[in-house]
Simulated assay, not measured.
Amino acid sequence: MSKNKSNLWQVFKGVAASMLGVQSHANYKSDFEQPSFIPFVVVGVLFVVGLVGLLILLVSTLT
């Protein structure tokens, strides 16, 4: 990723890698050089909501 704006796929990959703890230092640094943090917040919130929804679905089907 360069200093240009990230596309949605790059933002999603960055958020997913960060949440899983496998984000490389170069990608981490590149993410923080982006002009806006809003896409990262939106994708992060959607990622967490999706994860919680998946866990609720999994627990409800197993009980």
Rank of each mutant, 00 (worst) to 15 (best):
M1E: 02
M1L: 01
S2N: 11
S2G: 13
S2V: 03
K3Y: 01
K3I: 08
K3M: 10
K3P: 03
K3G: 09
K3D: 11
N4M: 07
N4C: 05
K5P: 05
K5T: 07
S6F: 03
L8H: 03
Q10S: 07
Q10F: 00
Q10Y: 00
V11I: 12
V11P: 04
V11K: 01
F12N: 08
A16V: 14
A16Y: 12
A17F: 10
A17I: 00
A17L: 12
A17W: 07
S18V: 05
M19Q: 15
M19C: 14
M19L: 15
M19Y: 13
L20V: 15
L20Q: 14
G21F: 01
V22C: 08
V22K: 08
Q23V: 01
Q23C: 02
S24L: 03
S24G: 03
S24W: 01
S24A: 02
H25M: 11
H25T: 15
H25D: 15
A26V: 03
N27T: 03
N27G: 04
N27F: 04
N27M: 03
N27W: 02
Y28D: 14
D31G: 02
D31I: 09
D31H: 07
F32T: 14
E33R: 03
E33W: 00
E33Y: 00
Q34D: 03
Q34Y: 00
Q34E: 02
P35L: 06
S36C: 09
S36E: 11
S36D: 12
F37C: 14
I38V: 14
I38A: 12
P39L: 10
P39D: 07
P39N: 06
P39C: 09
V41S: 05
V41E: 07
V41Q: 05
V41I: 14
V42N: 09
V43F: 12
V43A: 13
V43N: 06
V43H: 10
V45A: 08
V45M: 09
V45I: 13
V45F: 06
F47H: 11
V48M: 15
V48T: 14
V48R: 12
V48W: 08
V48C: 13
V49A: 11
V49R: 05
V49C: 07
G50F: 04
G50W: 09
G50S: 14
G50A: 15
L51H: 05
L51C: 09
V52I: 15
G53I: 13
L54V: 10
L54Y: 13
L55P: 00
I56K: 06
I56T: 13
L58Y: 04
L58V: 09
L58P: 01
V59R: 05
V59Y: 04
S60H: 08
S60Q: 14
